[in-house]
Nucleic acid binder design. Structure first.
Length: 284
RNA sequence: GGUGCUUGGGCCGGGAGGUUAGGCACUGGUCUGCAAAACCAGUUAGAGCGGUUCAAUUCCGCUAGGCACCU
């Protein structure tokens, strides 16, 4: 059975270099699994592989989408499965690399088949959220899908809206689509988790943010102002600069916040993978 | 040497004689289509010694540190 080797780990841990080494070893391209590096407009703030690295080893899903097309874990699952199917014809081992936990899970285990829901329904719910408040939506969710209502974090609007849009759009409870079983995949999976001493990791993050600023992150963010309300731009490094452009705080403060929020992000990634027993951890 | 002010967690900082400050930082957790998202939770104190009081981080005194001014 062909094997997929997934290199994962917190941001700035050194996944790119490691995965390129591995790709050379196996004669494989690198398949990216990163919810932000996939956008071509965000070249500096998402720390994608450099031009030289991209030239050294073919990469997939780097800069292949525009921030203007909404992309999701569900789409990634389909796109990546199709690509793997094709690549495994001439490779017995493929290297994947990325930091987006949900995308990795979607590819490995599959997401349940929730029917597509008219985007208008979400918009209506967002409007109602503003007018009637979260309480009203939670009340409705309790009526339509008590099971999800019980399991969901009641203060988490995003989840309440998501569950509700499926209930309303399909006429069936959100929970009725969930199945416990993981999907079968026609390849075996090996997950390598890269990690470092916390202090060292935070150091690397801080330094990388400084390098991004030198590389022109501010200009890049400025050029993306027209798209700032798109989900893709709700990203560390851009959010803070947008606020800075609004005059909320000086540039220096934006840089401090970018570093802080990136550290938070790294920690949350580690938390997310903490419950995945199938990861072989490797201390760098 | 003298006088006055001051001292609080890793940091900032309001209080108040009895009850949670709050914020930042840090740490832990949740997760089925926005996931670099969204959400939840936790940790650390009152410079030292003595006094007043039923009760002191809060009031008083002394000692030590800091700041300002004076000689």
């Amino acid at each position: 059975m062909p094997e997929l080797v997934i290199v994962l780990g917190p941001t700035a841990v050194g996944k790119t270099d490691y995965s390129i080494g591995l790709a050379h070893e196996y004669g494989s391209p690198v398949i990216s699994c990163d919810s932000r590096q996939i956008y071509r407009e965000m070249k500096i703030g998402t720390a994608p592989p450099s031009a030289e690295q991209l030239a050294a080893v073919p990469h997939y899903f780097i800069g292949t989408r525009s921030v203007t097309e909404p992309y999701t874990a569900g789409k990634y699952e389909l796109d990546a499965l199709a690509l793997l199917d094709e690549l495994f014809r001439d490779h017995s081992t493929l290297v994947m690399c990325g930091g987006s936990g949900l995308y990795i899970d979607a590819l490995c285990n599959g997401l349940d088949a929730f029917p597509d829901v008219d985007p208008q329904i979400r918009e209506d719910l967002m409007t109602r959220l503003e007018n009637e408040g979260l309480e009203a939506l939670r009340f409705e969710l309790r009526r339509l899908d008590p099971q999800t209502y019980e399991s969901i974090d009641p203060a988490n609007r995003q989840r309440v809206v998501r569950a509700l849009e499926v209930c309303i759009g399909t006429g069936r409870p959100f929970s009725s689509y969930k199945t416990a079983a993981a999907r079968e995949r026609p390849f075996s999976i090996r997950k390598i988790g890269l990690t470092r001493e916390r202090e060292e990791l935070y150091d690397r993050i801080n330094r990388r943010v400084d390098l991004m600023m030198e590389a022109g992150l501010e200009e890049e963010a400025r050029s993306l102002i027209p798209y700032r309300d798109l989900p893709a731009l709700n990203t560390v490094g851009y959010r803070e600069l947008f606020d800075c452009f609004d005059g909320k705080y000086p540039l220096e403060e934006a840089v401090r916040l970018i570093k802080r929020n990136t550290r938070h992000y790294a920690k949350k990634q580690l938390t997310y993978w903490g419950r995945d027993d199938s990861i072989e951890w490797m201390q760098l």
